[in-house]
Design a protein around this nucleic acid. Structure first.
Lengths: 227, 227
DNA sequence: TGAGTCAATTTTGGATACATTAATGTAGCC
DNA sequence: GGCTACATTAATGTATCCAAAATTGACTCA
């Protein structure tokens, strides 16, 4: 991300600000930008070989996604959400992701179910934290994609993005050994999906997110140093 | 909005794009801009006496709020959501507004309860559609404000904004006489709030939103001409 | 008459240059 | 020594100008 040329961020839309936003978002989610880091328009403009205009628009986009904080006449910082906000987001997810899943299950095709099954086993076999984050995210987002609720999907994706740092820190903290409960829960959800039981899948996901939130509220103070 | 000078959009932040966004948003919500209307950067820049730069940034802000649709190299239009998207939003509201209310009720002070009571009676006595929209919105948003969940609050406000046109059209359609059920529901919610029963208030609000959605799905086709 | 092509016009996207604001450093004063 | 006031610096915000893309309309040809 840092050493790339202008050509590397070229994209389908052809609009520079979108390309810059995409690259920056990726950099934030993969942890290359730490929360709280100041971001200067000049530096980014130089890095991408553009003027500050598209950089400014990219930063505004990311601000609306909750990944960047802009203060007028002051500048931009990588968003640094606190534990309270993280808990708030989990409470919201606890309500909306079950909705998305319940609308998705009856519309899901066999190919998607197969892909989800593969992801569940990948998550079990994973050793690297970054891989866990990637596959876990893919599993949850794919499981709700068949709902065909674009607004809801965008919201949920946004929440996964803004809490990414917390999930990374927590995954590193508990390690692979502490994740057996996640595997069991994924297995149960997967089984409910295969039975086409939207109600069971919804309830299991609610419990899954709720348990994670309570765990976070309990152990969260340990994470403070990592963020 | 249309005949205002630059000075009229001056604001606390001092940033022109914010002032323009605020004014445009107001114009959209009050119905001065119809959904589907094309918005040209030059016209707005001239109207506000600025260059196109702050106009573009304002339009991007409004796009992220779902009030404007931007297509690269093509231009900007006032967002025109279809019935399917409207129903989707009501399904989401059905899940998250009850959460907000249940977190708000135990934290609500007496002054807020008094203001809500006043709003309920104002809604009952209202004759103009615009007044109904205003007070109904104020009531619902104020009732959840004590939850102190800023992310959730912003989401809900956004949904009220993007579905504003539908509420206006539907209110005009059914008129004052058809709104007795809304008054009854508001009364029941108010009573639950005064009893400090978060659970009852939450459930009543869920039913309130759900009933509205079902009504919309049933009668929605009539609205098509108005939008 | 109608579809397709190409030039002219309009509109948006981006670069450069300037203005404005906030932060930093320095000198003067109590 | 520390505080305030002012000058300096550095960053963001905006205006103007240019480039690129899309729309429009005229024109050609079947």
């Amino acid at each position: 991300m840092k050493s790339e040329q202008k050509a590397d961020v070229a994209e389908e839309s052809g609009v520079l600000s979108h390309a810059i936003a995409t690259d920056l978002r990726d950099g934030i989610l993969t942890g290359q930008y730490r929360p709280g880091t100041r971001v200067r328009q000049d530096e980014l403009a130089e890095r991408y070989g553009t003027s500050r205009i598209p950089v400014r628009e990219a930063l505004r986009d990311l601000e609306s996604e909750g990944l960047v904080v802009l203060i007028p006449n002051r500048g931009a910082w990588i968003a640094k959400i606190d534990m309270q906000e993280c808990v708030e987001i989990y409470k919201i997810r606890e309500r909306i992701e079950p909705l998305a899943l319940s609308e998705s299950v009856p519309r899901m095709d066999q190919e998607t179910i197969n892909m989800l099954t593969v992801l569940v086993s990948k998550i079990q076999m994973v050793t690297e934290v970054e891989d866990f984050l990637k596959y876990d995210r893919e599993f949850h987002l794919l499981s709700i994609r068949s709902a065909r609720m674009p607004t809801l999907y965008a919201m949920i994706e946004r929440f996964w993005n803004t809490t990414q740092h917390y999930r990374r820190a927590y995954s590193q903290l508990i390690g692979n050994s502490g994740q057996w409960i996640i595997h069991d829960e994924h297995g149960l959800i997967m089984e409910a999906i295969k039975r086409r039981s939207a109600a069971d899948a919804e309830e299991l996901l609610r419990i899954h997110i709720r348990r994670t939130r309570l765990q976070l509220e309990r152990d969260g103070h340990i994470l403070l140093s990592a963020l």
